[in-house]
Design a protein around this nucleic acid. Sequence first.
DNA 1: CATGAATGAGAGTTCATTCAT
DNA 2: GATGAATGAACTCTCATTCAT
Lengths: 209, 209, 209, 209
Amino acid sequence: MGIQERKEREKERRRQQIMVAARRVFSKNGFNRATMEDIAKEAELSPGTLYLYFKNKDELYVSLSLRILQYLLIRLEHVKNKSLKPEESLVALQEAMFDVYDFDPMILINLFHLQSSVTLKSISPELLSQIKSLSQRSFSIIAYIMAKNIKYGSFIDQHPMAVANIYWSLFSGVILWETSKKIINNNDKDYLKKTLKKAFEIFNRGILK
Amino acid sequence: MGIQERKEREKERRRQQIMVAARRVFSKNGFNRATMEDIAKEAELSPGTLYLYFKNKDELYVSLSLRILQYLLIRLEHVKNKSLKPEESLVALQEAMFDVYDFDPMILINLFHLQSSVTLKSISPELLSQIKSLSQRSFSIIAYIMAKNIKYGSFIDQHPMAVANIYWSLFSGVILWETSKKIINNNDKDYLKKTLKKAFEIFNRGILK
Amino acid sequence: MGIQERKEREKERRRQQIMVAARRVFSKNGFNRATMEDIAKEAELSPGTLYLYFKNKDELYVSLSLRILQYLLIRLEHVKNKSLKPEESLVALQEAMFDVYDFDPMILINLFHLQSSVTLKSISPELLSQIKSLSQRSFSIIAYIMAKNIKYGSFIDQHPMAVANIYWSLFSGVILWETSKKIINNNDKDYLKKTLKKAFEIFNRGILK
Amino acid sequence: MGIQERKEREKERRRQQIMVAARRVFSKNGFNRATMEDIAKEAELSPGTLYLYFKNKDELYVSLSLRILQYLLIRLEHVKNKSLKPEESLVALQEAMFDVYDFDPMILINLFHLQSSVTLKSISPELLSQIKSLSQRSFSIIAYIMAKNIKYGSFIDQHPMAVANIYWSLFSGVILWETSKKIINNNDKDYLKKTLKKAFEIFNRGILK
DNA sequence: CATGAATGAGAGTTCATTCAT
DNA sequence: GATGAATGAACTCTCATTCAT
């Protein structure tokens, strides 16, 4: 059974190896200009091998997002499980969001772009449902935190889900826009975190009673 | 010279005709799956003709964004030129944003996606600089309105440009995220405008002194 | 309209040009080992061009059979339309079969092989129904001739359709088998026509009252 | 030496196991769409193992035909060895042919298709010569039976080999054509045996003095 | 100006075959 | 002998782009 286990581990490592390569190639060339052969070369594997681990290019691409969604969920569950006071949980939430961004900025941006993309049509139902499930579970935790704050009277009375949506929108909006600016202006200076912090400040002031 | 003019006008009309067709095809199939032949057919022209008006597929795509950027600028200038009280100008700004969304939601979303994309690399410098110029001019108007409110003491003291960025991020973030949700969940119900309104409310509460 | 016509003609000529090339390549390498690139090269065209005239490789392959089926039908109709005495029509039928073989032996053999192949699954329904229709119409003429002979008392009493089937089976069987022998034995001597003639003689003796 | 033998037997059994699986997969998917992996799975072996018993896919395919050719020869020798009267041997021959068809219809059809195919080029000379040898030996028995009938004056005077060829052609022709019809027309009703019987009847009437 | 047939590079993907274990 | 992960050549097919008419 040790052999079985070792094989499992090796298989998983291979998957990771491919995903690491894919990450690099996708982030350099974008989805369209990245070819499976590029990725194979980057992973020091043959093109055929990629298809032993991923059904097709789309699935490989989407799988990258899966990792960050998993991290997001874990991070949010961690926040939820600590029994914090409402306002404390808001701070913890904010920290979680920063962590998620730091975990893999490029992939997070991919995820934001993915959502409204056509790519979703050609991936396997299993993968799609995994994504949906992870998203929804994460999202309901954010809503839960918002609800707690509303219930305890520290937040204005709004539908928690709506507030969660706005929170997430602000998060993704700032990240996308600050990244865009950087690219368009060939700018090295990165205001992202500063802006994100300010954005959350304004949000908090706006939502507090 | 009348002839010259008429030719100009006709040429411009042709361009519009193509862009209208492109818009339809891109929005139906997405950028990748939309072929130049599809667009040509939709425009009742031949593929070759498209290349008399646009350097390549990318330029045609990006040109669509140009239109909405132009509209955005005009709309914002209109807000600026009316001599409104600070808080009034904020309301007017919000109205402008809604108008821009209504002007062409699909293309606006494209614009948001475009920003951090690789597409920008294959378009002509002229087109790129047009985009930059329009963006910046629009942006400085938003910043100007924010500055006015800060100066007149109704807003908390923050760098106007930062506030403008957050404002725009919130706008784009809500639109992208609400659209995403609709697609992922195969949902027909559209909460976008309602959520956008609430988002601006929170922003306003958060930014007001 | 002269232009229209000329274009039609040229388009048809192109199709023929491709089919001629395909015929050569398929007969040299067989279906599997023949690549679209080979055919394109043989036709002095680019691979892409082939797809302007044929949906895919299968369709191109099957289209070759269409020509001979069309010829078969024309030839059989010709036999039917001549008002011949029963026994004369049998002679005429035999001549028609020989003509069909001479028209394009290689493609005729393809047709025989095609029938029980899996290829039929990936061709367009239109093409398939064309093939079916041509086959059936041809076949009913053979049956019609057999029926005439039976009715006039020169043939033994058998179901005309069954007799037609046996006739066609004998025809295709002899052609396939004689061709096979030639290939297997690397034989240049061609007994096909002689054998076919004898086969029909035996058939005739066997069917005559 | 018992060990040697047992190993031989086991090796042969393994070969059979693979051929049984191959038979199933080929008949389900056709030669092209059947993959070595499919066959391996069906045989509950790994792909690599297949290559320990067969040089390549073509050889595996052709080996299936070998079995039926062996059966054909045995069956024909059996007919020959019984000292039958000429006309009786003709009946026995017919029975043998039906038995061969029943032995494995699908593989028999494969064999008919194989004959004029390009596949033969990529198999080993040994296998090819085995096929040739079996075919020829079978064939000469058919010719022998025909010769006997001619010699004894019950058959018209024709070259026995030619008659044998026509006999075999009729047999294969009917089988191929009836199978084709079934496939093309999605027909479940199977007229094969009935038609084959009639075909032999006509042949017999045609060949008898 | 407009056409649209032709191009041909290049994509994703498959799968017979190999070989280290 | 058996495995099965890895290979990589080769395939079909697409489509942005060109250019003779």
